[in-house]
Design a binder for these strands. Structure first.
Lengths: 354, 354
DNA sequence: TCAAGGTGCTAACACGTGTTATCAATTTAT
DNA sequence: ATAAATTGATAACACGTGTTAGCACCTTGA
């Protein structure tokens, strides 16, 4: 119980060789083993409560049955609300396929080649990289080797494997929704200033929509926030005293930004959506319970997670995947922050019991 | 670059033995090695871009420098909003101390002894268990062996190491806050029906407060929800048609529940906090941006995570920790959902730049 | 000159496992 | 009756690393 049980202990108890133990317990197909000794081994293993040491196993097999989720910046774990459903999707698929999960951070590694070192360490069989920095040389080198890597969000490399939503489309759809409501002064607040592709693409979609509607963009109506709602709040405060007057609608780059924008508008006495309509991107679980409930473009991060894991498994098995670039469809969820008189009542009321 | 580099390759290039390579690269203190050969080895290692294989290393060393975060139920990852800040705290402390992190699930393991098997597999040096099921035999056995385990939330075992908040106190403080506002019909909606200790303790604190105020508890005002806001919404709908009339205050067992409760109240035309005051527990990042902003008891899950990791590190090093039971102080955060005329404006406005 | 002690390095073992090549015993085919 | 084939089990190797014991050489002291 307390001391470690090794396969040699099982072998000794069953009075067979360690080889036999290994073959029985792993169910080796072409192993010639008598039924009698097979039962002896199984009995001994059960009696000693034997569980194989995965480290030894990994060493000889050259594979750890473990995958890494590499986060661009672990200090963002707390604030990036997109991560939790993502992790959920990855975990579910990974477990189902018998893979374990490590959480790693890309930045802050000592060496200059964090991705290469992670692979060389032999701890993982594959990795999922969340929102890679565009132009990351370490990652680019690794992707070129063909080693199993799936990126959440493109880096623009020729041989990359990605799972992504069409962020430009999402940005356009969100903005078009505001325009269809008759709004003409539509502002945008992004969720990051850094070079994250999703940020840039959503913004591009915003400009696309304006262009299609033949509305000249005003740079005073475009602000950059960060991962926290507070930045959305601050941006909205600035927008309300914009040169041409306050906007009549805001496309928030994320739901978290949307929360801040709405809060600022309400605090200033504006009515949402009557005076200002607001839409976000994400559809966090909490968004339906804001009042007004937050309109948004749902991007299914949980689904993206399981799709990424599915693709990665194909790659690790050495198969050519059906597609190296999976798009997750997004959908417009119109709620009270854009639709006047929206009925907030949840459609399905899970019954609570006393 | 593409093929694996082993320490023997470094040895060959530097024309020394593998032993020397190991000693140089690990900076063994009492190894007697000439400065000249030391430089040769370092140069060779750098030239080949050598990174030690952690699996081989782990095997011989008997330790993986990896810790597991064991989640009670991985299907709750998506809905339990407490997990993200917790993970953040754990990750930060773990990285700082040079430990990696695996995410595991307690349920759904094939064997009947998931915790024991995880240890026997040799993949981890210690584990943090989140909200263990009370009376889990597998975990109880492991804790008794003295193996490094830190629980987030007590299981009531004699030798357990825990990090927890005083949930009963939190429940009492929250309820007392409502009572001090003059409310007399105070309802409670818990965030789970299962036997999670935190749920039971917060509820006990609620009853404590009522008792101290000499208010007879009404069981019609006590509902059980789950991790999702929808259950809070449903519970509030029921409460509004309670026998003795709707409550004038609700103590929600979690912020997520609080969101649902407030939404239901507003949708029914009630004013918050004038007609119904609502307070939660957690202080999620989004809570300050609800309108009305959610009063709550902040329990610092991020801090709990890093404290748990700190304690675990002490245990793994074989030291006797200063305390085997760390309490994280909670604090009442009164906001607009309980205080009329509360100024919602965030105190620190992080400036957004265009 | 010879023992004693220090310096620089390495052969050999250990960690726990999966797998291949091989051997002995038994059965089948000729 | 003998060769050939099959069955049942294992010795030996491999995976990549850290560490101990020990060897050869050189310096020091008397």
């Amino acid at each position: 119980m307390t001391s470690k049980v090794r396969s040699i202990d099982v072998a000794n108890l069953a009075k067979v060789s360690r080889t036999t133990v290994s073959q029985v317990l792993n169910g080796v197909a072409d192993a010639r083993i008598g039924e009698e000794t097979r039962q002896k081994v199984l009995a001994a293993a059960r009696m000693l409560n034997y569980t194989p040491n995965e480290v030894g196993r990994s060493l000889v097999r050259g594979s750890t049955k473990t995958v890494a989720l590499v986060l661009r910046d672990i200090s963002l774990i707390e604030v990036d609300l997109f991560l939790q459903p993502l992790l959920s999707g990855i975990m579910k698929s990974a477990r189902q396929a018998g893979y374990g999960l490590r959480v790693e951070g890309a930045r802050g590694s000592l060496g200059g080649d964090p991705y290469g070192d992670l692979v060389a360490s032999g701890m993982i069989d594959g990795m999922i990289v969340e929102n890679p920095d565009a132009g990351d040389q370490s990652l680019a080198r690794l992707v070129n080797t063909g080693w199993p890597v799936v990126q959440l969000g493109s880096q623009g490399l020729p041989f990359e494997n990605t799972v992504q939503t069409d962020n430009q489309l999402a940005g356009r759809v969100a903005t078009e929704h505001l325009l269809q409501l008759g709004r003409r002064r539509v502002a945008h607040v992004s969720y990051s200033t850094s070079e994250i592709r999703a940020v840039v693409e959503r913004k591009a979609g915003y400009f696309d929509a304006l262009k299609n509607a033949k509305i000249p963009p005003e740079m005073e109506l475009v602000k950059n926030g960060d991962f926290e709602s507070s930045s959305g709040y601050a941006a909205m405060v600035e927008l309300m005293s914009a040169p041409g007057g306050p906007p009549d609608a805001v496309f928030a780059g994320s739901d978290a930004i949307g929360y801040g924008v709405i809060a600022a508008a309400l605090d200033a006495g504006l009515r949402v959506p009557k005076d200002v309509a607001v839409i976000g991107v994400d559809d966090l679980r909490t968004s339906a319970y804001f009042r007004p409930s937050l309109s948004t473009v749902r991007i299914h991060p949980s689904l993206a997670g399981s799709a990424a894991m599915g693709l990665l498994i194909e790659l690790m098995r050495g198969r050519e995947p059906q597609s190296r670039c999976i798009y997750i469809a997004s959908e417009l969820i119109a709620r009270g922050s854009t639709l006047e008189g929206f009925d907030n009542t949840p459609r399905v009321l899970s019954s609570a019991n006393s």
